[in-house]
């Protein structure tokens, strides 16, 4: 079976800023693929580019951009809007502002279904909305239909967003940091909900996050993004067991492990911030922040394989990490 979403060599440019530079990733049917990286490294832009939701003035190019085998590059706005909300849906980081304040939950949920399934009666659409609100764990779902977004908490609004995204039984759900704006207990609930939906409905999820704790719990596959490029991509277990890229290693070092980190020990961090990359930049974008940078890093870095389905972009020898640790000891 072919992959549900295939992205290869994706470039997105806003004027003189290259936000995404040749990113590639594939999401198989029914799998959860996590896209991780710091703020500003192009994760959200990649997702918006896939959905065709980039702001005006953005330029999108790709070697391959296909959904269920269908090339998205040549699709008109109209054809794209037929796909969005129907076969591919998206939820966002800001549950507080992502629902229209002027319409009830019921009205906003039913309009997606009635748009993509013309002929659906209002009553049937409302039934479906109630069913899904119940499915995402909202109590008294029938009552919620008449409520406005401002009457709901952030966690409830995100659940409504999820339920709304599921109205047309999409094959792919893109979730852009869906738990970042929520408090920790609610975060866990939403993640469990997404994992459950994924399992029960056979949904493919592209989950964007900067929280590696989330990744470890829900992802089948992880892509690490840095400065508009996917620098490492691997099955979750392989990535956590043997990260190959110094940036991935750096991210993992930033996660405090209870019992392992001593109280007075400083928490891990990667010095510096994600740079703005001008068009025409060559070489590894991480080299200015990398402790192991070498002259070769300024030239184009090829993609290398480190195992089945494990790829990374780095010039270092595969065993650099163990040797670095040995040198420290």
């Amino acid at each position: 079976m072919s992959a549900l979403l295939e992205v290869a060599g994706l470039h997105v440019r806003f004027g003189e800023v290259a936000a995404v530079r040749g990113a590639s990733l594939t999401v198989a049917r029914g799998e959860t693929h996590c896209l991780v990286g710091e703020s500003g490294c192009g994760k959200s832009v990649t997702a918006l580019a896939v959905m065709g939701l980039l702001a005006r003035g953005a330029r999108r190019e790709a070697e391959r951009l296909a959904f269920a085998g269908e090339d998205l590059r040549g699709l008109s706005d109209r054809a794209m809007s037929r796909l969005r909300g129907d076969r591919m849906a998206m939820i966002f980081q800001e549950p507080m502002t992502s629902l229209n304040p002027s319409y009830t939950v019921g009205s906003q949920m039913t309009e997606v279904l009635r748009r993509h399934r013309p002929g659906t009666t209002r009553a049937r659409a409302l039934d479906r909305a109630v069913e899904l609100l119940g499915r995402v764990g909202i109590t008294a779902p029938a009552m919620r239909l008449g409520q406005y977004p401002h009457q709901l908490s952030g966690g409830l609004r995100q659940r409504v967003m999820i339920a709304m995204a599921l109205m047309c039984e999409p094959e792919l759900l893109i979730a852009d940091e869906p738990t970042t704006a929520l408090d920790v207990t609610v975060q866990a609930q939403i993640l469990r909900l997404l994992a459950g939906l994924q399992r029960d409905l056979g949904l493919a999820i592209l989950l964007i996050t900067h929280d590696l704790g989330i990744v470890a719990r829900v992802a089948h596959r992880v892509s690490v993004m840095y400065a508009g490029e996917v620098v490492e991509s691997a099955p979750t277990a392989a990535l956590f067991a043997a990260p190959r890229h110094p940036y991935t290693r750096g991210l993992l070092a930033c996660v405090p492990v209870p019992g392992k980190v001593r109280r007075d020990q400083p928490l891990g961090s990667i010095p510096g911030v994600v740079p703005r990359i001008p068009p025409g930049f060559a070489g590894c974008a991480f080299r200015d922040r990398c402790a192991h940078a070498r002259p070769e890093c300024a030239a184009a870095v090829p993609r290398r394989a480190a195992g089945p389905e494990h790829e990374f972009r780095c010039t270092l020898a595969p065993d650099w990490a163990t040797r670095a640790e040995a040198a420290l000891a």
């Binding site: 939701l53 706005d77 809007s81 909300g85 966002f92 502002t97 229209n100 002027s102 309009e111």
Partner: peptide, 25 residues
């Protein structure tokens, strides 16, 4: 606004996005 991005993500028609969702607010 974010809710217009949501409306676009839902694949609504241009007219519905402009009038029903944006103009109303």
């Amino acid at each position: 606004s974010d809710y217009i991005r949501t409306a676009r993500a839902k694949g609504l028609s241009r007219l519905s996005i402009l009038v029903k969702h944006a103009l109303r607010n």
